[in-house]
């Protein structure tokens, strides 16, 4: 038997672990881990495995914007229709329905400011039901999905402590 939550926590922090390693860590068999991973995928709980990359340290030029979108809900379809439409764009990395002053929060990645601006003015603003948008450009990433970007990993402990 595999403890589902324990397994999820483990691979949330390190998606690179292979089933054999996971099996040892959880005190179970490789077969059980594989079966559970498959079940989690089938049930739509595990959506995929990605890598956290600090693009700022590469030569790739890119900008990330957080775009607030205010909507008027559409009859019978609520906000889902527009949200689903916006999700069709590959450069929309995330899309959330949120409470507060606006309704959708998009995380949008593109090559430069101009591209972001044209996405907002040409693709979002004209949509029926969109009342207004507000775009925030990300200037610096301090922490991404639980990972602090400037980590201090030094171990100041003595070599031997009884």
């Amino acid at each position: 038997m595999v403890n589902r939550m324990e397994l999820l926590k483990l691979i949330k922090n390190n998606a690179k672990l292979c089933p054999r390693e996971i099996a040892v860590m959880l005190g179970t068999t490789e077969e059980d881990v594989q079966a559970e991973l498959k079940a989690l995928s089938d049930e739509g709980i595990i959506l995929g495995y990605t890598t956290q990359i600090n693009w700022e340290k590469t030569e790739k030029e890119s900008v990330i914007a957080m775009i607030e979108v205010k909507l008027s809900p559409m009859r019978n379809r609520g906000y889902d229709h527009i949200a689903n439409l916006l999700c069709k764009y590959d450069k929309v990395a995330s899309c959330y329905l949120v409470s507060g002053d606006y309704d959708l929060m998009l995380i949008y990645e593109d090559d430069n400011l101009r591209e972001v601006a044209s996405f907002v003015s040409e693709k979002i603003a004209p949509l029926e039901g969109v009342l207004s948008t507000k775009t925030h450009f990300i200037l610096k990433k301090y922490k991404i999905d639980g990972i602090v970007s400037d980590r201090n990993d030094n171990d100041d402990r003595q070599t031997v402590i009884l």
Binding site: D155, R157, Q158, T159, V160, I161, L162
Partner: peptide
């Protein structure tokens, strides 16, 4: 590599 430390990492 130290596995000789009697305190939490």
């Amino acid at each position: 590599i130290s596995l000789s430390i009697g305190e939490p990492d």
